[in-house]
Write a protein that binds this DNA or RNA. Structure first.
Lengths: 235, 235
DNA sequence: ATGTACGAAATCGTATACGATAAGTATGGG
DNA sequence: CCCATACTTATCGTATACGATTTCGTACAT
């Protein structure tokens, strides 16, 4: 739809990708996908030689890929020690959620003036699907749809940098969730309601300030809900 | 004071640095410094072999360094073509300023509850120095002090991710300014006034919302002022 | 039994070498 | 005189090789 969704998780393209032919690039994409999909869980040790052999490459392009992933915060790379998939102590989770909250709010506010009625209709349709998910209890699908919802809103975002930050946050969280995600049904229901409210604000051409606040309130509530269970997250 | 200032410009540490011993790390630091200080202006062609020879290293660590810089947005690296210091068409400038505005506002709001009277005093002192700069017309020093001012406020920022984003924005802008910076004296005077207002808000324990708004308004005004001259920026 | 020291294995870091690709240049035809 | 094509050159991309560092296991002494 908006971004590429495959399997249980979602990999969002981040800016700065080189042409696909480069092995360094392939390694980057491949490793990132495996992290985001949860094949490589947090704490997983990424041994250069092993990954290189897996992919049939030499270590050099793999190193580059790892460095890029490090800059995105997906892995930690220590000299003479090696790379591990970034851990997620509750604190780190809070940081990420808080940052995402801010950045998503900004993206929503910036995009609002450019959202036409067609986009709103699409967003509303996605939100309806989310509502249905509530009955069938499908958390994975719910999360994917949630990102789809926001993606529709952000489609016309006039600032690609902000969008990039949002995507990085999503990827980060996807990596965390694949391993330790838990669903909060009550919160999810509320979320659907808030989405509808946000759409109405946009339809009524509310000020950017109001929209941003709404978006931030939404995120903030989500954050609180998840924070309660954050202690369950392992290092 | 807060961050390391040397020469006319300021290089802000960004998260993700490896131990200093690594050549890859040295290359990273060295190239970044030269970009931020303006030795490598936007558009400058970074030839791997040449840089490697300059530093006395081989190309491999240099490549890694470039990749990290690319992920931070400081350089553009195209397959089989090479790396160039990121350009700054007015649009890109707008994106960066807008993003920085949002992120700085958030950082200010988050930090506010943790700012004690001593920090406020220091911030105020810096702001006074800025006021003095207005008379002597020292734009470079003014910019440095401006970052110092915010650094004092952000010292206790509870979210390092946000802080990292702020620093990246500063580095980015520093790179741009070194080559094409122009000073807007009227705007600068206003800026000093707004800083004082912000400090008073914090002293009075104003809500995070109000503080964030003030910070954002400030940035927004700055943005507008610089945007007027943005067309003067070269690709 | 525990702590320490030494050695071996695993892994990372970097240099060098060579193949691949794109940009620049010259030459020949229109 | 201009354009297209072949060739040369500059630069990047990756593999391989080897040295450096860390970690882990084992043996020894207390």
């Amino acid at each position: 739809m908006v971004d590429i969704a495959f399997g249980p998780s979602v990999v969002v393209q981040t800016a700065g990708d080189t042409k696909p032919g480069s092995k360094s690039e392939q390694a980057y994409t491949s490793i990132k996908a495996r992290i985001v999909e949860g094949v490589f869980s947090p704490g997983y040790r990424l041994v250069l030689a092993k990954i290189a052999e897996d992919l049939g490459f030499s270590v050099v392009p793999v190193r580059e890929a790892i460095r890029r992933l490090e800059a995105e915060g997906l892995v930690k790379f220590e000299r003479n020690i090696g790379a591990t998939v970034s851990g997620i102590d509750p604190t780190e989770y809070l940081y990420t959620m808080q940052t995402l909250s801010i950045v998503e709010g900004a993206a929503t506010a910036l995009s609002a003036p450019f959202i036409d009625s067609a986009a709103i209709a699409r967003a509303r349709a996605v939100n309806e699907e989310m509502r249905e998910c509530l009955d069938h209890f499908d958390p994975v699908r719910f999360t994917t749809l949630n990102q789809d919802f926001h993606s529709v809103l952000f489609e016309q975002c006039p600032n690609p940098h902000i969008l990039d930050l949002v995507h990085r946050g999503w990827n980060r969280l996807a990596s965390l969730r694949s391993s330790t995600f838990r669903f909060v049904p009550g919160r999810a229901r509320e979320s659907v309601r808030e989405h509808e409210g946000l759409l109405q604000l946009i339809e009524n051409n509310a000020g950017a300030e109001a929209i941003e606040q709404a978006a931030r309130r939404h995120r903030s509530a989500t954050l609180d809900a998840y924070l309660a269970q954050a202690s369950a997250l392992t290092e």
